[in-house]
C-alpha cells in the first residue's frame, strides 16, 4: 500500500553485529523486516544507517530472500523473491537480483536477472543494462467477469 511509506521500518534478527565505523549492522539468523504491510524475510541482512542512525537501506540475502506487500487495488498480495533484495525505505524501491521473481496476484508474474520494484507506485522495471539476462512476464488471461477471477485465484 502507498501508506506503507509512512510506517516505521523495523528489522529483527537472532544476531546483530554493529560496525559503528561503517555505520552498518550485519544481521543473521531468520532476519525479518516490516514496514506497514511490507514484510521481508531472509537468512542474512545488512542494515545501512545514516549519520543519525536512521535506517537508510536494508540488503537481504537468502535462498531466496522474500518480500511481500499488500496492493492498494483489490487487496491482492505482491510477493517477490530473489537471491538479494536491496530495499531503500526512503525511495520505496526494492532492487531484486539473482532469479528475481515478482508475483502480482490476479495480474501476472515477472521473472528476470534484475527487477526494480517500487513499493509505493507498484512500478516494475526489469532487465539489466548489459542485456545479458532475459526478463519474463506472465500475464494471466483477462477474466471475463469477477466471479471467474475468484476461481482463477483459488486454482493457482
Amino acid at each position: 500500500k502507498k501508506s506503507d511509506q509512512e510506517q516505521p521500518l523495523d528489522v529483527y534478527a537472532n544476531h546483530f553485529q554493529a560496525d559503528q565505523g561503517k555505520q552498518t549492522t550485519v544481521l543473521s539468523g531468520s532476519v525479518k523486516l516490516t514496514q506497514g504491510t511490507i514484510q521481508g524475510e531472509a537468512d542474512k541482512g545488512t542494515v545501512h544507517q545514516d549519520k543519525n542512525n536512521q535506517i537508510q537501506r536494508v540488503v537481504l540475502e537468502g535462498k531466496p530472500a522474500r518480500l511481500q506487500q499488500q496492493l492498494d487495488d483489490g487487496g491482492g498480495m505482491m510477493r517477490a523473491s530473489a537471491h538479494t533484495i536491496d530495499y531503500a525505505g526512503e525511495s520505496a524501491t526494492a532492487v531484486l537480483s539473482g532469479d528475481a521473481v515478482v508475483v502480482q496476484e490476479g495480474r501476472g508474474e515477472f521473472r528476470g536477472e534484475r527487477i526494480v520494484y517500487n513499493t509505493a507506485s507498484g512500478e516494475v522495471t526489469g532487465g539489466s543494462e548489459s542485456g545479458s539476462g532475459r526478463v519474463h512476464l506472465k500475464m494471466l488471461p483477462k477474466p471475463k467477469d469477477p466471479a471467474k477471477a475468484a476461481d482463477a485465484e483459488t486454482k493457482k
Partner: peptide, 25 residues
Amino acid sequence: RNAEAADFTADRFQSKDTSKYVLEG
C-alpha cells in the same frame, strides 16, 4: 487462446504503473 496465459520475454521491460508494460530488445 482466450483461456491461456500469455508469456512475455525481452531483454528489458519497464512498467510505469501496473496497467502498461513496455518490453524492448
